[in-house]
């Protein structure tokens, strides 16, 4: 066990965990933020997607000891205009079914729109194909990303 100070959503959080503990479990069990989900543990499904210094990361596969002073953003800390547009579009189209993967989907979609305000279908495929949705809400995810992009134009 070792004590780490993680900067999550702008707040310093103390977690006392083994250095090899994946960031996901430091966030969930250590910091008590449960919006970030466990789906596979091997960076295959994207349910655990967070930002580390603004970059999307599969938190299940990054040890907490590698974080250092980097800034972590979880679904609870999303507040950019792109995030708000994505979440509004998700609700407008009733995208979620079981909802368990959707934190990760919203994180990835927000990251996409932050760097590419007018993504094509192909851009969406490339940015989102690391996020599995077993309910297969993909049709609405795609439509919602286009919808969010459109709302950001105005």
């Amino acid at each position: 066990m070792a004590a780490f100070t993680l900067k999550i959503n702008g707040q310093a959080r103390q977690v006392d965990v083994d250095p090899n503990t994946p960031l996901l479990w430091a966030i969930r069990d250590g910091a008590g933020l449960t919006g970030t989900k466990y789906g596979c543990g091997v960076a295959q499904c994207g349910a655990c997607t967070v930002y580390v210094d603004g970059q999307t990361v599969r938190s299940c596969s990054m040890p907490v000891s590698a974080i250092g002073t980097s800034e972590i953003t979880t679904i609870e800390g999303l507040d950019s205009k792109e995030a708000k547009a994505v979440q509004a579009a998700w609700v407008a189209l009733d995208v979620p079914q079981c909802g368990y993967c959707q934190s990760g989907q919203v994180m990835s979609a927000t990251a996409l729109l932050s760097v590419n305000p007018t993504p094509t279908d192909n851009d969406i495929d490339l940015a989102m194909n690391g996020n599995i949705c077993r309910c297969a809400t993909y049709v609405r995810i795609r439509a919602a990303i286009h919808g969010a992009a459109k709302s950001l134009e105005g």
């Binding site: 919006g35 970030t36 999303l78 919203v106």
Partner: peptide, 12 residues
């Protein structure tokens, strides 16, 4: 509209 969409979009 679905009653559970918002909470399933913001991690709650």
């Amino acid at each position: 509209k679905r009653l559970d969409s918002a909470d399933k979009t913001n991690g709650k």
